[in-house]
Nucleic acid binder design. Sequence first.
DNA 1: CTGTTAGCGCATTCAA
DNA 2: TTGAATGCGCTAACAG
Lengths: 347, 347
Amino acid sequence: MPTISDVARHAGVSVSTVSYALSGSRPISAETRERVLASMKLLGYHPNAMARSLATRRSRVIAMIYPEVDRGLGGTGGEFVRASAERARELGYQLVLWPFRAEEARQVRNLVRQGTADGVLVMEVLLDDERIDVLEEAGIPYTMIGRTRDVTSRHSVDIDFEATVEATIEHLVGLGHRRIAFVNHSRESLEAGYGPTVRVAAAFDRVMSERGLRPLARTCSDSPLDGRAVMGDLLAADPHLTAVVTMNELATFGVFAELQRRGLAIPADVSVMGIVSSPGVGTLSNPQLTTMHSPGAELGRLAVDRLLTQLDDSSRPVPNLLIPCVFEPGLSVGPARTEPDDAPQRP
Amino acid sequence: MPTISDVARHAGVSVSTVSYALSGSRPISAETRERVLASMKLLGYHPNAMARSLATRRSRVIAMIYPEVDRGLGGTGGEFVRASAERARELGYQLVLWPFRAEEARQVRNLVRQGTADGVLVMEVLLDDERIDVLEEAGIPYTMIGRTRDVTSRHSVDIDFEATVEATIEHLVGLGHRRIAFVNHSRESLEAGYGPTVRVAAAFDRVMSERGLRPLARTCSDSPLDGRAVMGDLLAADPHLTAVVTMNELATFGVFAELQRRGLAIPADVSVMGIVSSPGVGTLSNPQLTTMHSPGAELGRLAVDRLLTQLDDSSRPVPNLLIPCVFEPGLSVGPARTEPDDAPQRP
DNA sequence: CTGTTAGCGCATTCAA
DNA sequence: TTGAATGCGCTAACAG
């Protein structure tokens, strides 16, 4: 591996000239620049990243803390990592993976102190998340995907769950649905304070109540089996429901199975709409699932952009971002069936 | 951020003493070691990774080249990345992501020359893959997940496709199946020389032929829609087939749908077995798919172990590894149905 | 426009 | 058992 001094010697200039020829941060005559560049090419020179980082005190590395790339069947996690890595590379940064869960905040602090990363991306943030406290304390720039409970003065990009739920309910209500049930993620994730679980649960309650509708909701573990059970439970709670919203891809398969087992046609009898789902998952169901899919790749890119903006100018405040899910048409949602029972309940 | 000299000053020793107290590569009196360690704790000292790397000429970083974390719905890619990152961390290494496709071999070379990584992991290797040539040339330790065409003198861990196909066919033949069809990945991936596609196609032909059975195989794009079409095509080619092996998760959904549409019961009329599938994907089908699932996590760990073994001692040769898929029982495979047509064909 | 040089924070050789 | 000094490869003053 040739070093900068090899190049300097070969080109007959000083090391600083070589350095400046590379960075352009000081004028160089066209003639010497050519000579330097030629020598670099000839010797196959590439600046050593470590030495540069040490001198600059900038590693051009961003770390991504991710507890679960392979949660469920989702491409979402992977999609997110992928998009971030790609965007980072476009901007001359590398992405390193730090597989830490919320309990491992101390390890995060240790790594941060090693100075390997200029900034940190955090996936799967909990409402109360020590990792974020650690990053705040350490004074290292970060951007979370997701949000802690208190999001003011915290740096984040996230799915706009409120807008997503509103759009979903509005779509269904527009088709005449009034008895709408919701299948959430597991109770454990709710209790652990997993953002999507908590926020969508709250948004569903609010949006339904505001429209004078009954917010029938259930948590459900991420499995087709439990999806069936929960669907049965929901039908017991309201035999006349006409639509089910699911934020649980694996459970959705069970929801389909249970409806079909009972001879309820989708969407003629019951409409099913998946939200916050990974792109393409809709095509796996029969009939194809209508979804609001997560803007995973977009969030990944935006998170990197946001983080690097902070890095470039830590003084200027950067706004947080909320991106709604995107409607992806399918064949599992249709007009509500009308029957006598559908009339307003008597008091 | 305190530096090593801060610690030295605080402890009243020289920097080298601090350094040796940390590395243990030279005897230190218990007393001073205590003092040094105490100072480190007190100051919150953590050795700067960049400086250490520069001095050591070891970055303790391994790079992972991965073109598609989110191929299909598979957890396999993500699982692999995750397992590797975790294993790397256990061993004191960091994993960086290099999202390069096979065509971008030049970029790989540039990054390698920057010296950021001590070694490289390569996913989704093609039969002819320039990235591997680049790594060989650069003389940097690497391990591929997958194999190039010529695997002698190349470093790899991979799925044992031969063993997987043999186990699969043996299982089916044991249940009386003789007319077995195979649904592969897309023709494009076959032509691009994507390892699993090519190797399983060849293995299926060989294993079937050796048993005197007709190797009826089709490529199929990764979608339920094409899965349906191909299933129809296969039934046209052999109306009496009793088993279908699929290595295409999305297509498998279409295979199910098409069989069901034609009133063919699974597994009473036709057995379906998914191979090289991501763990858990079986539960999404109805009836639950019987699979041979990829040992993704295991491969991820082994790849890291193998790579680090090379790093520690580049002289000693490290053997390549082949890990077969693991049988995961489901409800989609049963005894072959017996009918008159099932007798040997007349000449 | 270009050269010289002092660090960046640590590992390690040479002395003691 | 410990300290002093050199260098890893590069950037960025400082000096011309």
